[in-house]
C-alpha cells in the first residue's frame, strides 16, 4: 500500500490529462470551423416523417426521397420533423442532425464532387426506420 515511489503514476496521469486537453482543444477548434455557415448558403428545408424525407428548395421545388444539389455550392439544411424524432444523415459528407418535432435544427454542407450518396435516418423512429432512406444527387451546375 505504501513504500513504493509513485512518480511513474504521476507521469502517467499527467500524460493522460495532456492527451485529453489536446483532444479537447483540437475538437473545439474543428467544430468551431465546421459550424461556421458560409454566407449565401442556399436553404433546403428538410422534413422527416415516418418513414421518408421531403426536401423543399428556396425556389419552391419539392422532392421526396431524392435530393438534387449542385457541386461547389453551399447548402444549409433546416431540419424538422412532422411526427417523431428522426436523424437526417448523409454519412459521406458527415451531415448528421436530429429532426425533432417542434424545433428546427440546422446543419450545412458543400458538396465537392459530382456523384450520388446515400441519405438515411440514424435515429430509431419505428417500423420502417431501417428503410427510411433516400439518395443525394450532386450534379454539375446548370447553365
Amino acid at each position: 500500500m505504501s513504500g513504493h515511489s509513485n512518480w511513474p503514476e504521476w507521469i502517467y496521469i499527467a500524460v493522460v490529462i495532456a492527451l485529453m486537453c489536446w483532444v479537447g482543444a483540437e475538437a473545439w477548434n474543428a467544430e468551431r470551423l465546421v459550424e461556421h455557415v458560409p454566407e449565401g448558403a442556399e436553404i433546403i428545408k428538410v422534413t422527416g416523417q415516418q418513414w421518408f424525407w421531403t426536401f423543399e428548395h428556396e425556389d419552391g421545388t419539392k422532392e421526396i426521397g431524392e435530393l438534387h444539389v449542385e457541386v461547389g455550392k453551399a447548402y444549409k439544411f433546416e431540419i424538422h420533423s412532422k411526427d417523431v424524432n428522426h436523424s437526417f444523415n448523409i454519412h459521406d459528407y458527415v451531415v448528421l442532425m436530429d429532426a425533432i418535432p417542434g424545433r428546427i435544427n440546422t446543419v450545412w454542407f458543400a458538396p465537392t464532387d459530382v456523384g450520388t450518396h446515400d441519405i438515411q435516418c440514424r435515429e430509431y423512429c419505428g417500423l420502417i426506420h431501417y428503410n427510411m432512406r433516400g439518395t443525394l444527387y450532386v450534379e454539375e451546375p446548370s447553365t
Partner: peptide, 15 residues
C-alpha cells in the same frame, strides 16, 4: 474519447 470529441461524434453517433 473519439465519441466525446464533438466533430468525430457526427460520424459515430447512432451508428
Amino acid at each position: 474519447v473519439a465519441n466525446a470529441a464533438m466533430p468525430l461524434d457526427f460520424s459515430t453517433h447512432d451508428s
